[in-house]
């Protein structure tokens, strides 16, 4: 094992897959000469050249549609959105073109493509740069949706995403880019669709994904001090959701809290609680609960912003109400 920040893990996944398959290329704003707005693509242009690391104009709808067409033409595009907020400009091409073509063509045309970039809130970038699109994309058949937390998962899942024959939404997090985690030194990939139990426990299940996992783990430490043993599940893949792992855990702990940084309404938590209610209802000793971003566009001011996103204290408090 060696230690890398998430940023490097993502870059390495891209580079390794590009070395393996000449038809894989990276396209997006500032990915080449600027080496990525968040420096994720650092060094790639010097290895692969501007033929395969393609700087685009600021034209999200255009280059997303272009990438969909390129995948029809036999390539495997990795589309970087500078942040996922800007993908709203391109949402039609993602949903109507990338996600639906395989079905509408009766299986004649598949679209192997990865859409990736930082998702959700960062620090004080306000509502238009803090949107968490996780729940939105999980609503769409024809897409796979990944939201890794640590470096090993980011690398292993991105490699699977690039090899996948379908459109894959890969949600990164700006605040995780600098976080350092262990990464296996062997060649590996992580299968899409499997959650990971980050901490074993027996009294309550906490599910989360992306940066939410960090807060969930911290909350579990607080619970430990109250002699409550929390099991923390990193969902990793949001669609298809690994409900088996969640249900199995709930059957053991009899309590569940879902944590997400997106909004509550029709969110990931709603989906998880619905699954738990129908598949493990008799095992529940307390109502299934969820915590999410407050139901407002994310404010700019630091104190207000902090109030909006679930943290270890708010998760801890919610968990305590279930005992």
């Amino acid at each position: 094992m060696s230690k890398f920040p998430v940023r490097t893990a993502i870059r390495d996944a891209i580079a390794e897959e590009m070395r393996l398959n000449p038809n894989v290329f990276l396209i997006g704003e500032e990915v080449g000469e600027y080496e990525g707005a968040y420096k994720v693509s650092q060094g790639l242009i010097s290895e692969f050249g501007n033929h395969r690391i393609v700087d685009t104009p600021i034209t999200e709808a255009g280059f997303t549609g272009l990438a969909v067409g390129a995948s029809m033409g036999g390539l495997r595009p990795i589309v970087e959105f500078m942040t996922w907020n800007f993908a709203f400009q391109a949402i039609d091409q993602i949903i109507n073109s990338a996600a639906k073509t395989y079905y509408m063509s009766g299986g004649l045309i598949n679209i192997p493509i990865v859409f990736r970039g930082p998702n959700g809130s960062a620090l004080q970038v306000a509502a238009q740069h803090s949107h968490d699109l996780s729940a939105l994309f999980t609503n769409i058949p024809g897409l796979k949706v990944l939201a890794p937390y640590d470096s090993a998962d980011a690398k292993g899942l991105l490699k699977s995403a690039i090899r996948d024959p379908n459109p894959v939404i890969f949600l990164e997090n700006e605040l995780l880019y600098n976080e350092v985690f262990e990464v296996p030194e062997i060649d590996y990939s992580i299968p899409i669709g499997s959650a990971n139990i980050k901490k074993l426990g027996s009294d309550i299940t906490i599910t989360s994904f992306s940066r939410g996992v960090h807060a969930a783990l911290k909350a579990a430490e607080l619970l430990e001090k109250e002699n409550i043993s929390a099991e923390v599940i990193d969902l990793r893949t949001l669609r298809p959701l690994d409900t088996n792992t969640i249900i199995k855990s709930v059957k053991k702990t009899n309590r569940i809290v879902s944590v997400e940084e997106g909004w509550m309404s029709s969110g990931i938590g709603a989906e998880i609680i619905s699954e738990v209610s129908s598949k493990a209802f008799d095992y529940l000793d307390a109502p299934p609960e969820r915590i999410a971003a407050l139901d407002v566009p994310l404010p700019y001011a630091s104190n207000l912003e902090k109030l909006c996103i679930p943290d270890q204290d708010s998760i801890f408090k919610l968990c305590m109400t279930l005992f």
Binding site: F25, T64, G65, L66, V68, G69, A70, M72, G73, Q93
Partner: peptide, 12 residues
């Protein structure tokens, strides 16, 4: 744009 991408692939 999709057709533009098919041309991009052709050139690539």
């Amino acid at each position: 744009p999709i057709g533009t991408g098919i041309a991009f692939a052709s050139k690539y």
